[in-house]
Design a binder for these strands. Structure first.
Lengths: 148, 148
DNA sequence: CCATTTTCGTCAGATCCTCTGACCATCGTC
DNA sequence: GACGATGGTCAGAGGATCTGACGAAAATGG
């Protein structure tokens, strides 16, 4: 704590800026595209829904929140028409959260924005440095992502 | 959105894991050291207090929250004895938020934990890759940190 | 097969975080 | 000095997140 800007910020803190930048950029462009009722928390959950749907418990684990929180956010996303809950054919207790039609449109916009941002960063850092950055972050994820 | 784990996560998302890991590690070790009344939001503000004290407005800008939010968090930190507010000698409107005695102890623990984590990451990635990671992140900060 | 334990999800309630809007005091400038 | 900009606060509302308790279905193990 208490290092304002100069004398070597911690790697963890340095990771904050790009992540935050991407998130607010996403939120802004989604709002501009007409999806102005999405929040970051909802997005973090929605971003982890797999193609065939994902269980609430898994969403919660991946997003590092409790299942209650995840359930709350899915409620909102469902009410807004972005996702849908269907019974899990393999488990009568569980339900799969799936991306609904309206959600697909959001995914498309989000993917485009992500690609844009990535292109800008690559242009600024250079191909090589960007590749190294990605490699290091993917490696680092192995020990910092408690889920995978 | 909707990329679970495999096919190339965005750089922004990859940045999330280390940052989150450091934050929860910090929170956990601070709690273990007896400072169990600190929250992440408070820490994010406190981490940006400079040696001579920092204005509320600057703290808010650096942490990317409104000054009301920053003020709220500083209230809590002050009530808990971690920081103190003193008049800014150069501006009668402003007050400087300074780290108080109890806060210094927290800073010491936090620095130690940060160093530990950094050492672990360096051991895993290797000196060279870590240096490259840091360089890329610092460079990236130039275009993703709206404050500096 | 039944009993026990685990897992999936929900409900209820509380706390914390963050924002918008309105407002006042002071600074800087012309 | 008048006026716009800046530093901060007060008040209120909406989200996000957690802990705890619970019901229903699955998995496990005799």
């Amino acid at each position: 704590m208490s290092d304002t800007g100069d004398p070597r910020q911690s790697l963890g803190l340095l990771c904050f800026y790009p992540h935050r930048a991407l998130e607010s950029r996403l939120l802004g462009e989604l709002a501009a595209a007409g999806f102005d009722d999405i929040t970051m928390a909802q997005g973090r959950i929605a971003a982890r829904i797999g193609p065939a749907g994902t269980r609430l418990t898994d969403l919660a684990a991946q997003a590092l929140v409790t299942k209650q929180t995840a359930g709350h956010l899915v409620d909102q996303l469902e009410r807004a028409g972005y996702v849908r809950r269907v019974p899990d054919p393999t488990d009568a207790r569980a339900r799969l959260v799936q991306v609904a039609e309206r959600g697909q449109e959001v995914v498309a916009v989000a993917r485009r924005v992500e690609a844009e941002v990535e292109a800008e960063w690559t242009a600024y850092l250079g191909e090589e440095a960007t590749a190294a950055l990605r490699a290091a972050l993917e490696r680092l994820r192995e020990i910092t992502d408690p889920y995978r």
